[in-house]
Design a protein around this nucleic acid. Structure first.
Length: 998
RNA sequence: GCCCGGAUGGCGGAACUGGCAGACGCAGCGGACUCAAAAUCCGCCGCCCGCGAGGGUGUGAGGGUUCGAGUCCCUCUCCGGGCACCA
């Protein structure tokens, strides 16, 4: 008996083996011919430039060259941009499309620390590997432009931009960055007063340097770092566990202040906010950026406060968005770390102080010390929801409650302060209020502590510290208005403080909740009766007149902490002399990373000082330089830049990657980045990437771009005109009865029957693809089973680009079958000969073709590749149904439409159709529909009777309403449902619908 | 808690400005071809009633606007994401 015959596969079937052969052949050909090289208008890359073609700049987000390889989820966005780019190229655009690598960063440094191998070696190996994986997908990158942030020729310009920022200040009048030399001119000419009002020339060098440094967009400040003495290194936040220990080794980590570089991004807060409105970005990303910037409009209000019977006043400055509720203030709270605490804390408790206000301590000072120690112990997450605080023994005066006193207090020139005999503190605090009050005061607390300082005729309120007030936001102090703010309400209830409503709530508002809505002001003197907005306006006016306050804007966003205590990053091109930082001159760039061979961690004493890795290279740390005033000794900056730095501007380097004279040639920059429409923001035409970069990367890059714009280095205010977030590919993962993940590719069964792994039941869940869930599927698996074009087609077919979707290997075969059917309509599987017919397509087929062209074109334009593929499939299915082989002309058009999606497949068929010597399909024009073939002379129109579909009629496309209705009534089923009754209404939506109402 | 998204067959999804719900693909079912299977081709495929023609019902739930609602408005449920004592 002969051996069981192999399943007979026709020799010329489009299967994985044939796909592989086609793909590698064309990839080699494209590379050799420079098929994807994009010309610049001038300079090194200008050969082949077509000045008539419109430009288009498309980019994927900068990948990190990870050592662990790709899974099928990674290239989703890359395939989408590649398809779009190929389409636009076929539409005649000059498209810039490339990819580089964001290659500095922690993983390479960690790898170096473990193996002793220099991070550059590992980084370069990873880049090569990733490049190979991407190439196998057939991505049409201009590889001449693919920079890596770790290239010395690249980071030289990252350092150059740092110096531009360092050498700039933000002019609030002009609302833009200006060169620092212009600030010095302003100071020395007296147009801008020096910090303490003295003439500029009277300041010594140290004072002048400090004044200037205070204004720079990059400046040095003390900021806390995570110092781990046992590892001898500073850790990133992600390397510190929730318990405040090192992830590696579980050692103690201490917060230590360290001089670090900051970027003054807050100066740009308003422009970053305003320009969001001009961007074509997903609304969710814009919202995230708005929230992150967190602009709130409000007022600063000063409350004079004292702990002494002599009324020595310290104003507490408060930021509030609700200045209209001022008269509802019944207490004040400072952040525990607030600098005024030490001045305001009293020596002794007043008589009758409630136990809960003292924390059980003998004196206010002790209570504060204990409270602070406890607050410092707790991480931010542990600060619980329940409100806590300590009374300082100090009182604050609510402005406008005694105008005479207030003026005396606030203006030192007035004699009012001493005009009255100082009252005893004990005389006016801490009386219990009568129960059963009225006048709109809620009296939920059984014994509210009186706060009315009737002796002076003004309202005095107790001053607390409490950890619900954050030092980092606003002024680190709040006015407690328990009637109008729920957090204040909770605090007031915990400490028995009274509640005064200042906005009349609706009758059904619960009495035990703060009311934050609109309504007329009450209990608010001159504000009474005004709504919230009017009250705000009036009180701000009064505050400003009286000097008690002023309108102000506050932001949640902080300046950007730019220093990293790391080796594998860009060195900061700064040295220090006795007065502070000094920029290296441009001609000393690049400042190259010194070799570091000593990767071993060193255990240090608990009380040791933080030291960045570069501090170990002693011959590098100290340096003798001549910076213009003779050779002197300087200390180098030891921190490096964060990974964000390199990714903040890479799109500019793509434009002109080999330029040694400038970060980008101005003409190249203008060609690729300037908006063709006047008034546009300019920037990359399409930027595709994950939503995880919604805030940090996209905000930092916008900030740098605006600085470069202000300084005249780029032609528009925004880096990325249009942003699309691609969704994530998720994958099913399976857990066995012990809750352990089992390899997903070994699981059998289905949703209906249940899933099994080696005979045991497993449960299914959806998660990120990766090692930990044992559910990775790699592109290599797919190439082996189907080929790269099938993978591309499947990923684009799965759903809309911006949507998350579950991976299902089982379904990939569908996309392969589609390609096989196309193949069979063009090529004979048995002989490999063309089987296209030279018969012209009939009228129906031509109309279908042109409808398809029109639909595919608009779907491609809108990046709706899933529906474009569906339309192409329908057309091809019609060809299959006819079974005669495709008409040659039609096959040729179909192949052109497929070319962006499955470039190798299309190139192969294109060449088979046209023979040797034909040009590449990648540069052929994308088909255009003939409008004459899109209109039809008859249409089939559905007929509704009383809102229900009862039949269809075929009528001429230009039928008028009456004829259409008559035709509808002639349809038997429609007639049956009308049943001879009178038509109350008849409607014909041309080509769409006939509606009858009886 | 606040702010964004989202919910359509067994599954992924389609449906343009309110106008035939379920395109296309997977899975499933039936048929042709075959000794048989695979592959391929043809057909069916939301649910309920009906031999059928056809009828009823149906886009997370409830209400509304409209001749007509997956699409617009109100209320609610669930899922995903972001922020989180931000004054």
């Amino acid at each position: 008996m002969p051996a069981a015959p192999e399943a007979e596969v026709p020799p010329h079937r489009y299967d994985a083996a044939l796909a592989e052969e086609i793909e590698s052949r064309w990839q080699a050909h494209w590379e050799a011919s420079g098929a994807y090289e994009t010309p610049n208008p001038a300079g090194e890359f200008s050969s082949g430039h077509d000045s008539a073609a419109r430009k288009l700049f498309v980019m994927d987000m900068f990948p990190y060259p990870s050592g662990s390889g790709l899974h099928v989820g990674h290239p989703l966005g890359y395939i989408a941009t590649d398809v779009y780019v190929r389409f636009k190229r076929m539409c005649g655009f000059n498209v810039l499309y490339t990819m580089g690598f964001d290659a500095f960063g922690l993983p390479a440094e960690e790898h170096a620390r473990q193996t002793g191998q220099h991070p550059r070696i590992n980084t370069e190996a990873n880049i090569d590997n990733m490049r190979r994986q991407l190439d196998r997908l057939g991505l049409g990158h201009d590889q001449r432009r693919g920079v890596a942030t770790t290239d010395v020729g690249y980071y030289r310009w990252t350092q150059w931009i740092f110096l531009q920022i360092f050498n700039s200040w933000f002019d609030p009048e002009a609302r833009r960055a200006r060169p620092i030399t212009e600030l010095i001119d302003e100071f020395s000419s007296g147009r801008k007063p020096a910090p303490d009002g003295r003439p500029w020339d009277d300041l010594d060098e140290a004072e002048q340097r400090a004044a200037v440094d205070d204004h720079r967009l990059a400046y040095v400040a003390d900021a806390p770092v995570n110092w781990c003495p046992a590892l001898g290194t500073v850790l990133a936040n992600e390397e510190v566990t929730a318990q405040g220990r090192s992830e590696r080794g579980n050692h103690e980590v201490f917060k230590r202040p360290l001089k670090q570089w900051m970027m003054r991004i807050t100066a740009y807060a308003d422009r970053l906010l305003e320009d969001l409105d001009r961007l074509d970005w997903p609304e969710s990303v814009k919202t995230m950026q708005r929230n992150w910037i967190g602009r709130s409009d409000g007022a600063l209000i000063s409350f004079p406060a004292t702990n002494s019977r002599h009324l020595e006043m310290h104003p507490i400055e408060v930021f509030t968005t609700r200045p209209d509720t001022l008269f509802g203030t019944t207490y004040m709270v400072l952040a525990p770390e607030h600098p005024l605490v030490d001045q305001l804390v009293a020596d002794a408790w007043p008589a009758d102080v409630p136990e809960s206000w003292t924390g059980g301590a003998a004196t206010p000072r002790e209570a504060v010390a204990e409270y602070r120690a406890r607050a410092a112990d707790l991480s931010d997450a542990d600060r619980s929801d329940s409100k806590s605080g300590i009374f300082l023994g100090a009182l604050a005066l609510v402005p406008f409650t005694d105008p005479d006193l207030v003026e005396g207090v606030l203006s030192p020139t007035e004699s009012g302060r001493d005009s009255e005999a100082p009252p005893e503190l004990a005389d006016f605090i801490l009386r219990r209020e009568d129960a059963g009050d009225s006048n709109g005061r809620d009296s939920k607390s059984s014994e509210p502590w009186a706060i009315v300082g009737s002796v002076l005729g003004g309202t005095l309120v107790p001053v607390f510290i409490g950890d619900y007030v954050l030092m980092g936001y606003g002024t680190g102090a709040v006015m407690g208005v328990p009637g109008e703010d729920q957090r204040d309400r909770e605090f007031a209830e915990a400490y028995g403080l009274p509640v005064i409503r200042t906005v009349q709530p609706p009758p059904d508002h619960p009495t035990d909740l703060a009311y934050t809505g609109d309504g007329p002001s009450i209990n608010s003197r001159f504000l009474d009766g005004l709504d919230v907005e009017a009250s705000k306006a009036l009180i701000i006016e009064r505050l400003t007149e009286s000097g008690f306050g002023r309108p102000t804007v506050n932001y949640r966003m902080r300046d950007w902490l730019f220093s990293r205590q790391r080796y594998w990053g860009e060195p900061i091109p700064i040295v220090f002399d006795d007065f502070g930082p000094v920029a290296l001159p441009e001609d000393m760039l690049p400042l190259e990373l010194p070799e570091l061979t000593d990767w071993a961690p060193r255990a240090l004493a608990r009380d040791s000082e933080p030291e960045p890795p570069l501090g170990r290279v002693s011959e590098w740390v100290g340096v003798e330089l001549d910076l213009g005033d003779g050779t002197r000794r300087y200390r180098r900056e030891l921190n490096t830049m964060p990974q964000w730095a390199g990714s903040c501007w890479y799109y500019l380097r793509y434009l002109d990657p080999t330029n040694d004279d400038a970060l980008v040639d101005p003409d190249a920059e203008r060609y690729w980045m300037a908006d063709p429409e006047p008034g546009g923001v300019g920037g990359v035409d399409l930027y595709v990437g994950g939503v995880e970069h919604a805030v940090l990367h996209l905000l930092y890059a916008r900030f740098w771009h605006k600085v470069l714009y202000d300084l005249g280095h780029v032609s528009g205010p925004e880096p990325f005109k249009r942003l699309v977030n691609q969704g994530y590919i998720q994958a099913y993962a399976f857990k066995d009865s012990r809750g352990v993940y089992v390899p997903a590719d070994e699981v059998e069964g289905s949703q209906q029957e249940g899933f099994e792994h080696r005979g045991g039941p497993v449960t299914r869940e959806l998660g990120k693809m990766g090692k930990s869930l044992k559910n990775s599927v790699t592109p290599d698996d797919m190439y082996a089973s189907y080929g790269a074009d099938t993978l591309r087609l499947y990923e684009m077919f799965m759903g809309p680009i911006d949507q998350d979707r579950p991976w299902e290997t089982r379904s990939v075969v569908g996309s392969q079958r589609v390609l096989q059917r196309v193949w069979r309509n063009v090529v004979d599987e048995e002989t490999g000969e063309l089987r296209v017919s030279d018969e012209p397509p009939d009228d129906d087929l031509r109309r279908l073709l042109h409808r398809t062209i029109a639909g595919v074109r608009s779907d491609m334009e809108g990046m709706r590749f899933n529906t474009a593929i569906a339309k192409l499939t329908e057309l091809n299915n019609e060809l299959t149904r006819r079974g005669t082989g495709a008409p040659r002309d039609l096959a040729e058009v179909l192949v052109r439409m497929l070319a962006p999606l499955v470039p190798h497949f299309a190139e192969e068929l294109w060449h088979r159709l046209h023979g040797e010597g034909t040009g590449s399909v990648t540069r052929v024009e994308f088909p255009t529909a003939d409008p004459a073939l899109l209109v039809t002379d008859t249409v089939e129109v559905p007929v509704q009777v009383n809102g229900k579909l009862r039949g269809r009629v075929t009528i001429a496309a230009d039928t008028d309403s009456e004829t259409a209705v008559a035709a509808a009534l002639a349809e038997p089923n429609v007639a049956a449902h009308v049943g001879g009754r009178e038509l109350r209404k008849q409607l014909y939506v041309p080509g769409r619908m006939i509606t009858l109402v009886v």
